[in-house]
């Protein structure tokens, strides 16, 4: 269903959509990007809500250059940044304590599963260490955006997108390798 919707989103990019159509076509990619930036499902939902409220207010302007998805993701990045900033202020140290306790009391798993989880965790940490806008380039590339859309979403030059992705990739390999060794 996700793939279907994303494919639809690609085919309708450049066509003027009404608000409902825009929501149906793009809410998934907005949610996934918001989640990747905030790493908090609740916060990601807040971000999606705010992004689409803004879209409702600026539906015409958002589609003026035919890059609605890029516009949505640019707003998603801005709203997520503010949301994370607010959350960091509000969050206490209790959460890390709870996470630590959960990890400590987690049931034992088979070795293979533990190894796989460790690998995933390392890859995630490597991904998290990549700086912006390189990290967002990777995320948006993964979501199937073209260089043109990525450039519009992140406010960077289109000719630099390939270079940013290549640097992000090198950075990932460097950090992932380092974490793997340690």
């Amino acid at each position: 269903m996700d793939c279907q919707s994303d494919a639809t989103a690609q085919t309708i990019e450049g066509v003027r959509l009404n608000f409902d159509e825009a929501f149906v076509a793009h809410h998934r990619v907005v949610y996934r990007y918001a989640y990747a930036l905030t790493r908090d499902p609740g916060l990601a939902e807040d971000v999606v809500q705010e992004v689409f409220v803004r879209l409702h207010q600026h539906l015409d302007a958002a589609q003026r250059d035919g890059l609605l998805r890029a516009w949505l993701l640019r707003v998603t990045a801005n709203v997520s940044r503010n949301a994370v900033r607010g959350l960091r202020r509000a969050r206490s140290r209790d959460e890390s304590f709870v996470a630590h306790m959960l990890q400590a009391t987690a049931p034992a798993r088979p070795d293979d599963e533990l190894l796989r989880q460790a690998e995933i965790s390392e890859a995630r940490r490597a991904l998290a260490k990549i700086k912006e806008p390189m990290r967002s380039c990777l995320l948006l590339k993964h979501e199937g955006l073209s260089y043109k859309e990525i450039a519009a979403a992140l406010g960077v030059n289109e000719s630099n997108v390939g270079s940013l992705i290549a640097r992000a990739r090198r950075e990932f390999v460097r950090v992932y390798g380092k974490i793997g060794k340690s």
């Binding site: 949610y31 990747a36 995933i120 890859a123 991904l127 993964h142």
Partner: peptide, 15 residues
């Protein structure tokens, strides 16, 4: 590997 990491991190269910 990056795609795998992003996939692992992405939520499976979109509400």
């Amino acid at each position: 590997a990056i795609d795998g990491a992003i996939d692992d991190e992405s939520p499976i269910d979109i509400p």
